[in-house]
């Protein structure tokens, strides 16, 4: 309780010293906006990382959930916030895909933010209801092509990881399937376990335990190497499918114009957090791991963002689905 009192007092102090020098940063509570609701996978990543960053920075780093409109509302909030290092954004791959999915964003994802660093890359797994006939990925591909009118593919709504992955899968197979959208991963997984739909591709955060528990069948991981948590699961390439490598990467951003020393300090704190054994351990339980140290940098995140916007633009435009 006492710490809370101090935090509140520090917040007020921090505000009254608005013009403090950048080298003293941080002198107050740092707020990290997560543009999704509390308890979701991105929120989890944020809470693990910020907890460690708080210790490094010596100031409270809090998570603020500003959900809505595929993460664009929270991003817009940070884009407009004061570039003083106290307003940050933790966003995932959606930062790149919304650039195309939304034809009118109130900010430019490429210029409105100062990148701080990449955090993690969560791999995708192709899963199915447990009684689907094919035994391996090659079998599945021919099965899907032969039954393309009846095979159903579940996704968690426009712009969701499962939606992006489905688009990649179908374009790699050159076979459009009947997509069944859901409101979020939870209900989609329920119907997959219940056998109401055939296929889904989703993050390991959402599928690992169900695969291990035998509730669903897994065909492949869309990554260039096998997972430590699911060593028996072949990669897509092993199964004869190219070009579907996909990870749900997360990055930390500040508003454009945030002073260089502040960004550097934050990038260092992020790097320290990603090396924190506790963070590494929790990430591993989620089926992912922190990016290597050389990726937790502003330059790496900027490069990733630019590359991913370019990668997704044609895929989304070809599918012709927009979120506005």
């Amino acid at each position: 309780m006492i710490r809370r009192h101090l935090t509140a007092a520090a917040t007020i102090l921090g505000l009254s010293m608005g013009g403090a020098l950048a080298q003293d940063y941080p002198t107050g509570t740092v707020s990290v906006v997560v543009p999704f609701s509390a308890g979701g996978p991105t929120d989890t990543v944020a809470r693990l990382v910020t907890e460690s960053m708080s210790r490094t920075l010596g100031q409270q780093v809090i998570v603020e959930n500003v959900g809505g409109a595929g993460g664009t509302l929270g991003a817009a909030r940070v884009a407009k916030a004061a570039p003083d290092g106290y307003n940050l954004l933790l966003h995932h791959i959606g930062m790149a895909t919304t650039a195309t999915l939304y034809r009118s964003l109130p900010y430019d994802p490429q210029t409105a933010f100062a990148p701080i660093g990449l955090i993690t890359d969560v791999p995708m797994t192709l899963v199915a209801r447990k009684d689907l006939e094919p035994q391996d990925l090659a079998g599945l591909i021919s099965y899907v092509k032969a039954n393309k009118d009846t095979v159903t593919y579940a996704n968690a709504g426009v712009g969701a990881a499962s939606h992006l992955c489905g688009m990649l899968f179908m374009s790699a197979l050159q076979t459009p399937l009947t997509t069944v959208p859901y409101k979020g991963t939870g209900p989609a997984m329920t119907d997959l376990i219940g056998g109401q739909v055939d296929l889904m591709c989703d993050q390991t955060t959402n599928t690992t335990n169900q695969i291990k528990g035998g509730e669903i069948k897994a065909y492949a991981v869309f990554l260039d190497q096998r997972l430590d948590s699911l060593p028996d699961l072949p990669t897509a390439k092993e199964g004869g499918l190219e070009g579907v490598e996909l990870g749900i990467w997360h990055g930390l951003y500040a508003p454009a114009g945030t002073p260089e020393p502040v960004i550097a300090k934050l990038a260092d704190a992020l790097k320290t957090a990603l090396a924190d054994p506790k963070v590494v351990e929790r990430f591993a339980e989620l089926g992912t791991k922190p990016v290597p140290a050389d990726q937790a940098t502003p330059a790496a995140l900027q490069a990733k963002l630019t590359a991913e916007i370019a990668r997704w633009r044609p895929v989304i435009e070809a599918a012709g689905i927009y979120a506005d």
Binding site: R4, A8, T11, I12, E64
Partner: peptide, 18 residues
């Protein structure tokens, strides 16, 4: 809300800090 629950809303906003 602010002290007890630590709700992340600023007590005094940017309009008031010059």
């Amino acid at each position: 809300f602010s002290v007890g629950l630590g709700l992340p809303i600023r007590l005094l906003g940017p309009w008031l800090s010059l």
